[in-house]
Nucleic acid binder design. Sequence first.
DNA 1: TCCGGGTATATTGTATACAATGTGCAATAT
DNA 2: ATATTGCACATTGTATACAATATACCCGGA
Lengths: 232, 232
Amino acid sequence: MDNNFNINEDAFLPLRDVVFKTLRQSILTGELKPGERLMEIHLADKLGVSRTPIREAIRQLELEGLVVMLPRRGAQVAHITEKSMSDVLEVRLALDELSVKLACERITDEEIERLREACLDFEKAVDSADIRNITSADVAFHDIIFAASRNMRLIQMMNNLAEQMYRYRFEYIKDDSGWQSLITEHRMITDAIAMRDPELSARAIHVHIKNQENSIIRTIRREEKSRKKDKE
Amino acid sequence: MDNNFNINEDAFLPLRDVVFKTLRQSILTGELKPGERLMEIHLADKLGVSRTPIREAIRQLELEGLVVMLPRRGAQVAHITEKSMSDVLEVRLALDELSVKLACERITDEEIERLREACLDFEKAVDSADIRNITSADVAFHDIIFAASRNMRLIQMMNNLAEQMYRYRFEYIKDDSGWQSLITEHRMITDAIAMRDPELSARAIHVHIKNQENSIIRTIRREEKSRKKDKE
DNA sequence: TCCGGGTATATTGTATACAATGTGCAATAT
DNA sequence: ATATTGCACATTGTATACAATATACCCGGA
């Protein structure tokens, strides 16, 4: 599908997009911590570019909700709260349900086949017990469903929301109690879509997201508790 | 509530935000037409600022989907197609249903009262037959529901989607065939929320959005037809 | 006449210079 | 000793200069 000129494809992107991707990755992985200030000169020096692309990248991060702007104080990494996360998940749930319903109507047989493969890949990834594998297999699985919705706007919004979730995912996925159930859930989703049953699919994805939500909330609460203990 | 220093409050906003608002307004009202190129020097001269704030504003418009970037060709106003509109409406429908469901759980009695008033205001606006009145009354009505969802992320996304709809609203609302039914629909939504019945509310808003969708699609098709005739 | 190459020009991409403003520290007065 | 004022510095906001590149037009040759 791809030709072989994607080596260092970033070299052909505008610097602002390279910077944007770099900063976003740093925030999502926690390298840049919530509340940390993004100072332009500092970042410019560090990345070896001028302030202009840095500023334009920050504008985009602002719209994505990953940073907040304070007038005359610049940008700082947005804080994560349980409320903000459950807000995101509430929306995600609704849009995920929409995705699978639309996918049921519009998915091709060939895509159903790819979905089954992605489902199996995910099982293998869980066997490998490598977090990066598991995460990317999970993303691949859901991406197929999004694409099958044939709704560009929806795909764009879901990518955005999914990105937000990575900030938590890197935490909650360590909580391995639910990996086996994730496999079961993915299978149910796949089967429901293959049967092109919108309501069944919606219920399956509902369970899936709710379980993740509970898992993440448990993690956050645990961390908050331990933070409080540290203070004492 | 407000003090009296909000005279020309834009004067205290960064130029990029002023430019952003200006350009967005121009696009939504159709002053800047789909496909039109946004050339930085030209806009800078016209608005009396340098290219820097223009560029930063364009970055934001890009994220909102109002302009598309072409590499090395800059920005141009995003085209409106029936597909892009139905994409937006598909998402809107899902999020509107979520809004009313959440509102049913979280709305206060005082807000229900305000909702009823907004409902009556809308009826008065329809009587006045002034499009601007009708539009703003409609927005006010829906804003109360959004706010009652208590989900900041959802509110932000709905505002965004609603803005996109203005590009069409200025057209479709001329189609007055549905104003009376809009009143009925608003009443049904209000009653359902007042009863705090999520499913009934969802069905009511579903009908509401679908009717608007049909109305807009009729308008678009009619315009496309007349455009084709012009060409002949 | 039509096609192709090359150059001029317009436009975006990037860097840097300059202006405005907020923050922190220190000096001074109470 | 503490509070307040003013100044220096750090940082963002804005403008402009410079570089890279795409587009359009012109000219020459087939």
